[in-house]
Amino acid sequence: MPRITVKVDGISYEEDVEPRMLLVHFLRDRLGKTGTPIGCDTSNCGSCTVLMDGKSVKSCSVLAVQADESEIVTIEGLSSDGNWHPMQRAFHEEHALQCGYCTPGMILAAIDLLKDDPDPSDDAIRQGLEGNLCRCTGYCNIVRAVRRGAGEMGVTTR
């Protein structure tokens, strides 16, 4: 069984995994990082989105062995010392979540999209989130939240 070393939300793990183990199952079942949920089996819904070496990936479509030597950030690693990431605050402020199941993936996809386009248009936000499905919100408030989050992140980085 291959041994992998992965840093998840700032903590290093060394684990033996079956080659077929999906990254999302590794996170959830092995490490107990249940903040990242699973919504489908065809990489369509994006609920399981995490950042892998800084880029958004769908953790249901990555094998844990492929994540060897990488650094993963999940929704649980975004806030520190109780301080939420601006995007988490923005989702709360704009009521951009209802059941919350898609929210971790949506927030991480939003953060990723701002890396390329720190001040996206509404259309760019919608296109950038095309791989993350939400069944509750109709997306209007998610778009608003990403815009707000972008604004706040712009302020903090400037």
């Binding site: 990489s43 994006g46 989105t49 892998m52 880029k55 958004s56 990936v57 769908k58 479509s61 990555v62 996809a109 990723d112 999209l113 950038g128 095309e130 791989g131 993350n132």
Partner: peptide, 9 residues
Amino acid sequence: VADPAVRHR
């Protein structure tokens, strides 16, 4: 192709 996360991998 697909969406940004898929295009990363």
